[in-house]
Simulated assay, not measured.
Amino acid sequence: MKYLNIQDTDTTLTALLDEVAATQTEVVVTRDGIPVARIVPWQAKRTSTDDYPLRGMPIVIAEDFDEPMPELWETLGE
């Protein structure tokens, strides 16, 4: 972790952000030696299809999906 005094950020902010992005390490910004902020690398949200294993798969509906089911009604006693 890198420490940086707040007076130094005005002139080196762009270079500092480039360093954080390249090295994926955080920087602590201090004022008079006391930490006041952290600059951390951005981590994009996962957009993997692992969360939704059926995403992208075709939906197949049987041709008789809306046909009556007499065995069901017999079992239910209706």
Rank of each mutant, 00 (worst) to 15 (best):
D50R: 11
D32L: 02
D66I: 10
V60I: 14
E67S: 15
D18G: 05
E67H: 14
A44I: 02
I61S: 10
V28E: 05
E74S: 10
Y3T: 12
P68T: 14
W73S: 14
E26V: 02
T75Y: 11
A62L: 03
I61K: 14
M1H: 13
K45H: 06
I34D: 12
T75V: 07
L13T: 05
F65N: 12
G33M: 02
D64S: 11
E71Q: 10
T47F: 11
T9G: 06
L72Q: 05
V27W: 08
N5Y: 04
G77T: 04
P58Q: 03
A62S: 13
Y3W: 12
L4H: 00
R46C: 05
P35D: 06
P41G: 01
T14H: 11
A62I: 00
T11Y: 00
M57H: 14
L16S: 00
P68V: 12
T23L: 01
P70E: 06
I39F: 01
D10V: 07
V29Y: 06
S48V: 04
I61C: 10
R31S: 15
L13K: 04
T49P: 06
T12F: 03
D8N: 07
G56I: 13
R38C: 06
V28L: 06
I39V: 07
E74P: 05
W73K: 12
D10N: 06
G33C: 02
Y3L: 15
E67T: 13
A62E: 11
M1W: 07
V27P: 09
E19Y: 05
L13R: 05
G77D: 07
Q24F: 07
Y52T: 15
V29G: 05
R55D: 15
P35R: 03
I34P: 03
T30V: 04
A15E: 11
P41M: 04
Q7T: 13
